[in-house]
């Protein structure tokens, strides 16, 4: 057992090393291409230029302000999407009638490109923050509700039957069985959708925004400020990494009972 555990540690260290090597390689290529003058500065800023840009934006506070705006927009839009999609998806999974009622419209809406809805949202909601949240909501909700329904309907029917014969009533089955059983899958669904929320953030900040990381990137294009574009992209990527990491921790805390791959080995 002890040796099995340490073997697993070695394996996990190896994987971490591989991930790191990938990042290092990309940075090395970047350095070669940029310091070796293989690519023009306008197209590919040097690492030092990007870092000094990041530092100067951090110093004047604009970096944090833009991050804060964008994170707030993503979070609020996404949370709304979760609040509506969670009960709706659970209901869809457990009621054929409700599913028949809403499924077609959701499937329809799911294929509408969010960019095409921007003019309408501007018309209805103006350029207020609500418009940004709505874009993010529209981009994530229809996918999320179907994912939730799928995750919930994959809960082992035998477990639900066991609960019924143990005297659980309808609401108790939802609360005590379906929700906890689906939780790890749901957390995973949430993790994926928050990633998409960042995609739609840029859509939302493309028009009628005066701050945020997406706005920062778009405005920089006009001035050919590629160093700022890179700085913005790196920030979004880093925030994404941190978000993913937080979700993994939440999953581990919320569902420590899960049999993870490699546990049984």
């Amino acid at each position: 057992m002890g040796s099995g555990k340490s073997k697993k540690m070695v394996k996990s260290m190896q994987y971490k090393m591989l991930s790191l090597i990938c990042f290092v390689l990309i940075i090395v290529f970047w350095c070669i291409a940029s310091y070796g003058h293989l690519v023009q500065e306008v197209f590919l800023p040097s690492p030092t230029a990007v870092i000094s840009k990041l530092l100067s934006m951090a110093k004047d506070g604009s970096l944090w302000a833009n991050c804060r705006e964008s994170i707030a927009r993503v979070m609020i839009g996404w949370i709304w999407s979760v609040i509506v999609a969670l009960p709706m998806g659970m209901l869809m999974a457990n009621s054929k009638r409700f599913s028949a009622f809403v499924q077609p419209i959701i499937e329809f809406a799911r294929y509408l490109p969010v960019v095409a809805l921007v003019p309408l949202t501007l018309l209805y909601l103006g350029i207020e923050e609500t418009q940004k949240y709505t874009i993010i909501f529209l981009g994530t909700f229809f996918q999320l509700v179907l994912m939730v329904a799928d995750t919930v309907s994959n809960v082992d029917a035998n477990m639900i039957n066991a609960a019924k014969t143990l005297g659980a009533k309808r609401f108790q089955i939802y609360k005590e069985v379906i929700f906890p059983a689906a939780l790890p899958g749901l957390i995973d669904d949430f993790r994926l959708t928050i990633g998409w929320a960042w995609t739609y953030l840029v859509v939302a900040e493309m028009v009628a925004a005066s701050n945020g990381l997406g706005f920062m990137i778009l405005r920089s294009q006009r001035y050919l400020a590629t160093d700022t574009i890179f700085a913005g992209l790196i920030m979004i990527g880093l925030i994404g990494l941190v978000t993913d990491w937080i979700f993994r921790i939440i999953s581990r805390i919320a569902a420590p009972w899960q049999e993870r791959l490699g546990d049984s080995r």
Partner: peptide, 18 residues
């Protein structure tokens, strides 16, 4: 319908893993 007066044990255990 199902009820606690008829307890069932299944081949697949059906324990709540959490």
């Amino acid at each position: 319908g199902a009820g606690a007066d008829r307890g069932m044990v299944f081949q697949g255990y059906s324990l709540f893993p959490w």
